[in-house]
C-alpha cells in the first residue's frame, strides 16, 4: 500500500506500517471488543437498519406518487374529452412526477438552509474544553473512532438526563447533553451516549428525518387541498359518471394518506434510533456502556422542560415518554428502551 509509505507513522518516520495478516488482525479486534462479541455483528445491524429505512422512504414516495397520480386522473376526468378510467393516465403520471419532484426539491432547499435554529430551541449553551474537560475528551475519542470532525458541544442546564445531536452536515454538527447526564453517568456510559449521538451525525439522521418530515408535511398539505377542492367543485360543476368512483377513492385517499405517512415517519425515526445504537457499538466496541446509560435514563424521572414536540425526535430517549401517558407504540419517535437494551445485549454484552 503506497498510502502509508514514507510517511511519519505511529513510530516516527519509517517505511510502512507493521505487516500483519488480515485474519489475525480481525480476530484480535474481535477479542478486544469483549467476550462473545463478533466484530461484524454491528455491521450486519447497520445494514439491516439501512434496508428498513430505504423501504420506509420507498413507501412514502409511493404514497406521494399515487396521490399525484390520482389528482392527475381527476383532472383528466374533468378536462379531457376522451376519458377512460381504466387506461393508464398521462395526466396521472405527470401528477406523480410533479409530486415526487417537489418533495425532492423542498428537501434539497432545506439541506442548504442549515440548522442553526434547533440548538437555540433547546435552550443549550456552548461549553469550552476548560469548562467540561471530560465531555470534550470523550467526544474527541468518539470523533477519532468515527473519523468525523469534532462537533460543537453544548450543555443544557437541567437535572433531566438526555442528549441530542443535530446538523445537516457532519462538519457543521452540534452535540448536546444535559447537566443531569454529565453528573449521573460514568465515563464509559457517557462514552456510549456520545457514541450514539455521533452515530446520528455519521448516519446523516438530521438530514434524513428532515427529508421525511418534508414529504409527510407535503402529503398532508396536498390531502387537505384535495378535500377542500373536491368539496367546492362538487357543488359547482357536474362531472361525467366515470368520475364518481374516482372522487370517492380520492376522498378516502386524502383522509388515509396523511395518517399513513405520519406512521411511516415515526417508524423511520425508530429505525434510526436502533441504527444509532448499533453504530455506537461499532465506535466504542463496548455495548455495556450504552446499556448502563440507557438503564439509568430509563430509571430517571426528572421531567425535561427544554424539549417540545418539534425537537423530541432528536434526543437519545424521548423526553416525553413518562409524562405523556400511554403513547401508542405506532406513534412513538423512539423504540421502547427495554427493546433497545435487548438488542444491544444481543450484540454480545453480558
Amino acid at each position: 500500500m503506497s498510502a502509508s509509505g514514507s510517511q511519519p507513522g505511529p513510530w516516527g518516520a519509517r517505511d510502512s506500517p507493521p505487516a500483519g495478516s488480515a485474519p489475525v488482525a480481525m480476530t484480535a479486534r474481535a477479542k478486544a471488543a469483549g467476550p462473545g462479541l463478533k466484530a461484524t455483528d454491528f455491521l450486519a445491524a447497520q445494514r439491516a437498519n439501512r434496508r428498513n429505512t430505504v423501504w420506509l422512504i420507498a413507501i412514502l414516495l409511493t404514497l406521494g406518487g399515487s396521490f399525484g397520480y390520482l389528482l392527475g386522473l381527476l383532472a383528466e376526468a374533468n378536462f379531457a374529452p376522451d376519458f377512460d378510467a381504466f387506461a393508464p393516465s398521462r395526466f396521472g403520471v405527470v401528477g406523480a412526477v410533479v409530486f415526487v419532484g417537489i418533495g425532492a426539491a423542498a428537501s434539497l432547499v432545506t439541506f442548504a438552509a442549515g440548522d442553526r435554529v434547533i440548538v437555540g430551541m433547546t435552550g443549550a449553551r456552548e461549553v469550552s474544553a476548560a469548562d467540561e474537560p471530560v465531555l470534550h475528551n470523550v467526544v474527541e475519542e468518539m470523533a477519532i473512532a468515527s473519523g468525523l470532525p469534532k462537533p460543537r458541544l453544548v450543555v443544557i442546564d437541567t437535572p433531566a438526563m438526555n442528549a441530542f445531536a443535530t446538523g445537516m452536515r457532519p462538519d457543521r454538527a452540534a452535540l448536546g447533553v444535559t447537566r443531569g447526564l454529565l453528573d449521573g453517568l460514568s465515563r464509559d456510559e457517557l462514552q456510549g451516549v456520545v457514541g450514539h449521538e455521533m452515530s446520528h451525525i455519521a448516519n446523516l439522521d438530521t438530514r434524513y428525518l428532515t427529508a421525511v418530515a418534508i414529504l409527510v408535511g407535503l402529503i398532508g398539505l396536498v390531502a387537505d387541498a384535495t378535500r377542500r377542492s373536491l368539496f367546492y367543485s362538487g357543488r359547482r360543476q357536474r362531472r361525467g359518471r366515470a368520475a364518481a368512483p374516482l372522487i370517492a377513492i380520492l376522498l378516502l385517499f386524502s383522509i388515509l394518506a396523511p395518517i399513513a405517512a405520519m406512521l411511516v415517519r415515526f417508524a423511520v425515526s425508530r429505525q434510526r434510533e436502533y441504527l444509532a445504537d448499533a453504530t455506537a457499538v461499532r465506535f466504542t466496541r463496548n455495548p455495556t456502556g450504552l446499556i448502563g446509560a440507557l438503564q439509568k435514563l430509563e430509571a430517571s424521572v426528572q421531567p425535561f422542560a427544554g424539549a417540545n414536540r418539534a425537537t423530541q425526535h432528536m434526543f437519545i430517549v424521548n423526553p416525553f415518554r413518562d409524562f405523556a401517558g400511554n403513547v401508542s407504540a405506532l406513534m412513538a419517535t423512539h423504540p421502547p428502551i427495554a427493546n433497545r437494551i435487548e438488542r444491544l445485549q444481543n450484540l454480545g454484552a453480558d
Binding site: 507493521p18 500483519g20 484480535a28
Partner: peptide, 8 residues
Amino acid sequence: GVAPYFEV
C-alpha cells in the same frame, strides 16, 4: 494496493 492491518 491493499493496506496492512495494524495487529494488536
